[in-house]
């Protein structure tokens, strides 16, 4: 575990059933999800090992029932794991006492929920100030801080409204503001935009990217929408039946799907939009002429790829040449997409 690892999850298991611990002890290796179910247990999280580094946005992607929400709840210990270890900032969270856990949540973690999880009897201001109130901050200070985050999410002027008086998008802004009120280092978002209609969802994603650019938190983001995952993620972990099928950058997932299941997901994806020049700079030959930016997607470079005649195009990151891109390979990706 490097110094910059915020959450480290090693062989974590979460099993639901009458006697999960006892069952896990006797569980033979290689038992599949269906085998476990036949024994009357559900493997919510199945032998997951994953690290999240500081400032990274990890998106956990999977269909409903794949265990993604369970996994994130294990990170925050809303669920107790059955086996394995999860450390947060170097602390084994299963060894925390209730008091320490509450302290951790009060100071380090924020979470946004799919159906917002707002308290219906509290105004926007009181909802946002709720975590501050719980840790005993005085009324004046928490009001000030709450107003600050409300402004940050663009809900100024609605402080006195009650949740039911707001639209879905606005309610989720309250949820986001509340999760940010305590200035958490780690930010969990459990399908935050799934309950919103597509137009609002797009708007909220932009808003979210803007906030993240400003705040630079460590983020675990859950979604069942692959497009959303590709749009937001530094790394994507694809889950199926409680296990992580593949965890990698969007480019790699699209280019080199590890399993058949992942490949099916990527099938309909416009790869040219996902794959970046930096990933394709694999040639040892750096090529000649004007370099392209490593952050540019193949689609961004479409015109250049078609018109250029060089076999190898140099790729630069922050003004430094990092390698050469095979133009034919890049063209292949572009053509495959269209």
């Amino acid at each position: 575990m490097s110094a910059d690892t915020v959450i480290s999850c090693k062989n974590a298991w979460k099993i639901f059933g009458p006697d999960p611990e006892g069952y896990l002890k006797t569980l033979p290796a290689g038992h599949s999800f269906d085998d476990i179910r036949a024994d009357g247990y559900i493997a919510g999280v199945k032998d997951v090992s994953i690290d999240v580094s500081r400032g990274e946005m990890l998106v956990i992607m999977g269909l409903s029932g794949s265990g993604k929400s369970t996994l994130v709840r294990c990170f925050s210990r809303l669920h107790d794991i059955t086996g394995g270890t999860i450390t947060v900032e170097g602390q084994d969270i299963m060894s925390l006492s209730e008091k320490e856990l509450i302290e951790l949540r009060r100071n380090k973690m924020g979470m946004v929920f799919q159906s917002f999880g707002l308290l219906p009897h509290r105004s926007v201001l009181d909802n946002v100030a709720f975590p501050l109130e719980m840790r005993g901050q005085d009324k004046h200070a928490r009001r000030e801080r709450a107003l600050e985050v409300i402004k940050l999410v663009g809900l100024e002027g609605r402080e006195d409204y009650f949740p039911r008086e707001l639209s879905g998008g606005q309610q989720q802004r309250v949820g986001i503001a509340r999760s940010l009120a305590i200035e958490p280092d780690i930010w969990f978002l459990d399908e935050p935009f799934s309950a919103l209609d597509p137009l609002i969802r797009r708007e909220m994603q932009d808003e979210f990217l803007r906030l993240q650019a400003m705040l630079g938190k460590t983020i675990v983001f859950i979604t069942h929408d692959f497009d959303e995952a590709l749009r937001l993620a530094d790394r994507i972990a694809i889950m199926k039946d409680g296990a992580v099928e593949q965890c990698d950058t969007p480019d790699q997932i699209v280019l080199n799907p590890a399993t058949e299941y992942v490949r099916k997901f990527t099938e309909d994806i416009d790869k040219a939009r996902v794959v970046h020049a930096g990933v394709l700079a694999t040639s040892s030959d750096n090529g000649t002429g004007d370099p392209v930016d490593a952050k540019a997607s193949v689609q961004d470079l479409a015109r250049l790829l078609v018109q250029d005649t060089r076999a190898i195009i140099p790729v630069a990151s922050d003004g430094k040449i990092v390698g050469g891109m095979d133009r034919a390979a890049a063209l292949e990706i572009l053509l495959e997409a269209s």
């Binding site: 949540r105 009060r106 929920f113 707002l118 308290l119 975590p131 719980m134």
Partner: peptide
């Protein structure tokens, strides 16, 4: 979810 929100609020 509301309960979890409460838990996560410490």
């Amino acid at each position: 979810e509301v309960v979890e929100a409460g838990n996560m609020s410490g």
